[in-house]
Design a protein around this nucleic acid. Structure first.
Length: 792
DNA sequence: GCATGAAAAATACCC
DNA sequence: ACGGGTATTTTTCATGCG
């Protein structure tokens, strides 16, 4: 019978030496199903050397049959590799477990150049070859079987055909469960071997909320309650914050401590760490919203509370914050206990809210990139585009290159022009939309069209990149041209549909998420080719794209000048010119003819201030908002007090054009700061630990602060943000930096904040308007000089 | 031994 | 573990002086 289903997760199993692909889904009736495919073969390729035949390779393998007992069959095939035709032997195996071993051994056979695609995992192979994709609908021929596997589904089927994609925008009703845990310990970070999980708060997409609270710190009933709760609700998606790095491991370890097993998936196995460091729950999608928060660059310190605040889920001022909680006393003190319980509940509510705001995008990205929903957040940008390319490559018969270790060789990027410092009125910003993708499309720049420097020119002719001279075949269309024009076209199809929809409708949300996912993949294509970790790393491709980019933007700047437009700034794909519509129209026309790329007006600034530095400016938009770029205001490593002062200064300068007033504001703020009227929170400086603390070559303030935290038994690792304040005392800055959680306002060195935070941030702007640093400091109260003063 | 300035390390931004 | 270009702060090193 035919079955319509939405693909949720996929995994593979080997049973009695026979491989199986398990496809988990939801059917059109809302039943949770597992479809087992038992006839999908594992395989890899042996590329044959020039001048050798696939026949001789096949014969060589056959004579050594005893070494390779699990070969299913051998097939001679024609494929392409970096655009060039190659002959290969496709080696089918009875088990995915022998693929890598066989490939390694057979690569040494006479006449074999190399093995390929033996590094594509079996379950992924199935998705790629059948064109099935997570988070979308498929139709498949199946046969119902009895559930003898002990899996938690409504129906179990055996696959009788490959799945086929069915275009359908609407999702099934997903059951989503959110949770957060509170572990309790006296000091520092809780350890699962000693410290219990005292509260687990759960919320479900049906609106139900539940809390499991320990009595006398015995967490066994808490864990049992949670496990039962998950199994009873049977969610498709489980969301949390920090689940990959913490919660799942902690819960699994605590369960073991009580001789329990944390069986919360659909196959009665424990959570297990899988590719890209995500924790997998078989048959469900476990999504860690912390990983997805990387998509929100505006949020500098990625706590759940900050993310929820940014997304408008739960405002910071209307909730209990972690810094208000001391786990030890809140757990033990019966009067404070309720606020800890409430805090935990609010965390899970935030998680559900953040999930509602971000899951649509994750689902679309999963579907587009073809990687399971639980991998999407942890897979780096490079891997997301890579899986998309892998699928596209298979469709056109391109073999997938292996991942290689390569040396890093830098190459030239974009041009950035010196801005004309000061305030300018009525400035238009024009830019090339998707400049690098369009360069690659128009010049046919692609890994498979690159003509190496020693190769003869192909008959179709070549496009030659300026400056660097790299050549690219004009015909036929390259892999990248096909992929990128397809992506751009699909985004162009979505846009008009969006404008017809109500932004609050589910269709709009889905399409908007789709459009964003397409954009992410499109924009990653250029950088990917220049990444040494990429399967399709071809440095000349990246180098040619930037060379054409430089050529195009310089032509634009020069043409603008010829027309009589003043160029006040330019960065990569944009030019900032005086807003003269007729000249701008003339420029656009000339440029499209000259370089073949379209340039469009992006925005107009009523007034814009440039500093002397590149990449730092602030524009006033017609609606009165400030567009702040690169300045301290938008940086996460400046204290809030300095950022707030700078923002206010910019506002006074650009809206009221009153530099004196701005200076006065700064002076007044400093007076207040010296009296400690600023909030302690506004004095915290946040910096990221980019490597383990012991690997640092210099003593940096945030690293020393991190070490202090570690002495207090906090667990810190790469990527963590360290919040510290500068305290009073002598010596180097790193000696005075203290984690904000361990310091108090009394010890704060307010003069540091005046001299090294407020004044530089304010002066960055005000020095452009002729205001010296001294004018930003409050006037010292004139006093009669004493003998003591003279004697100094 | 110490002040000074240049270089290196580290981070976060822009596009 | 996508790219290069850029600004900035703090630490560290090198140098010259006395």
């Amino acid at each position: 019978m035919k079955k319509l289903f939405w693909l949720l997760d996929v995994n593979s199993e080997v049973r009695e030496q026979k491989p199986e692909v398990w496809v988990w889904g939801i059917d059109d009736k809302g039943q949770r199903i597992l479809i087992i495919e038992q006839n999908f073969p594992a395989y890899f390729y042996l590329v044959v050397k020039d001048g050798c035949s696939t026949r001789s390779v096949t014969a060589a393998i056959t004579t050594r049959q005893t070494e390779f007992p699990l070969i299913l069959k051998l097939e001679s095939v024609s494929r392409k590799y970096f655009g060039k035709p190659v002959d290969a032997v496709k080696v089918y195996c009875r088990s995915p477990d022998v693929v890598s071993k066989y490939a390694k051994a057979m690569a040494k056979i006479e006449g074999v150049k190399e093995s390929l695609e033996d590094d594509i995992r079996y379950a992924m192979r199935y998705l790629i070859d059948t064109s099935a994709s997570p988070c979308s609908w498929h139709e498949i021929e199946v046969e119902e079987t009895s559930n003898t596997r002990g899996v938690q589904v409504d129906k179990l089927y055996t696959a009788k055909s490959p799945p086929e994609r069915v275009e359908e925008v609407a999702f099934p009703q997903l059951r989503i469960l959110g949770f957060s845990i509170i572990a309790y310990c006296q000091r520092g970070a809780p350890k699962p071997d000693k410290n219990p999980v005292v509260i687990i708060s759960v919320a479900a997409s049906n609106g139900k909320e539940q809390q499991f609270i320990a009595r006398n710190s015995n967490d066994k009933p808490v864990l049992e309650g949670f496990i039962k709760c998950v199994r009873d609700f049977d969610p498709d998606v489980i969301v949390g914050y920090g689940t990959n790095r913490q919660d799942w491991n902690y819960l699994t370890a605590r369960a073991r401590k009580h001789c329990l097993k944390l069986l919360v998936d659909r196959a009665s196995t424990e959570p297990h760490t899988s590719v890209y460091g995500h924790v997998s729950l078989t048959g469900r999608a476990s999504v860690d919203l912390f990983d997805l928060a990387d998509e929100l660059p505006e949020v500098k310190v990625k706590t759940l509370e900050n993310v929820a605040d940014f997304l408008g889920v739960m405002k910071l001022g209307k909730r209990i914050l972690p810094e208000d909680i001391d786990y030890a006393t809140h757990w033990e003190d019966s009067r404070k206990h309720p606020s800890l319980v409430k805090f935990s509940k609010e965390k899970t509510q935030s998680i559900m809210g953040v999930a509602r705001a971000m899951l649509d995008f994750a689902i679309q990205l999963s579907n587009l990139a073809g990687i399971p929903l639980d991998h999407v957040g942890t897979a780096a940008v490079g891997f997301r585009i890579e899986w998309y390319l892998v699928r596209e490559a298979c469709k056109i018969g391109e073999l997938i290159p292996k991942r290689l270790e390569r040396p890093y060789i830098p190459y030239a990027g974009a041009v950035v022009l010196e801005p004309k410092p000061g305030v300018h009125e009525n400035i238009a910003v024009l830019d090339f939309k998707a400049m690098y993708p369009n360069i690659m499309i128009t010049r046919n720049v692609s890994p498979d069209t690159y003509v190496g420097s020693s190769e003869p020119e192909p008959s179709s002719g070549v496009n030659v990149a300026p400056e660097v001279g790299h050549r690219f075949r004009k015909e036929p269309s390259g892999f990248y041209r096909e992929v990128l024009s397809g992506l751009i076209a699909s985004r162009d199809e979505i846009r008009p549909k969006l404008s017809k929809l109500n932004p609050k409708s589910p269709e709009y949300r889905t399409l908007d998420a789709r459009q964003k996912a397409v954009k992410v993949i499109t924009n990653a294509a250029y950088g990917y080719t220049g990444w040494i970790g990429a399967r399709w790393y071809v440095k000349p491709v990246a180098e040619a794209a930037t060379a054409w980019g430089r050529d195009i933007i310089m032509s634009t700047v020069n043409t603008a000048k010829k027309i009589g437009l003043e160029v006040v700034y330019s960065d990569t794909d944009s030019v900032f010119v005086n807003n003269d519509p007729s000249k701008i129209a003339e420029l656009s026309e000339k440029i499209v003819k000259e370089v073949g790329l379209e340039m469009k007006p992006d925005k107009v600034y009523t007034r814009v201030l440039f500093t002397e530095a590149k990449k730092k400016y602030c524009g006033l938009l017609p609606d009165g908002r400030l567009d702040i770029v690169g300045l301290e205001v938008v940086r996460g490593d400046w204290a809030n007090c300095a950022k707030n002062v700078q923002e206010r200064v910019l506002e006074i300068i650009l809206k009221q054009q009153a530099p004196k007033k701005a200076a006065e504001f700064v002076r007044n703020y400093i007076v207040d700061l010296r009296q400690k009227k600023a909030s302690y929170r506004d004095l915290i400086i946040w910096k990221t630990l980019t490597k383990p603390v012991e690997e640092y070559q210099v003593k940096a303030p945030h690293v020393e602060a991190a070490k202090r935290l570690m002495r207090e038994r906090y667990e810190l690792s790469m990527g963590d943000k360290i919040g510290y304040v500068i305290t009073l005392g002598a010596g180097k800055l790193y000696e005075k930096a203290k984690p904000y959680v361990l310091a108090s306002y009394d010890e704060v060195d307010t003069e540091y904040y005046v001299t090294n935070q407020i004044v530089p941030a304010a002066s960055r702007i005000l020095s452009m308007l002729g205001i010296a640093e001294e004018e930003l400091l409050p006037i010292a109260i004139p006093k009669t000089k004493t003998l003591g003063d003279f004697s100094k």
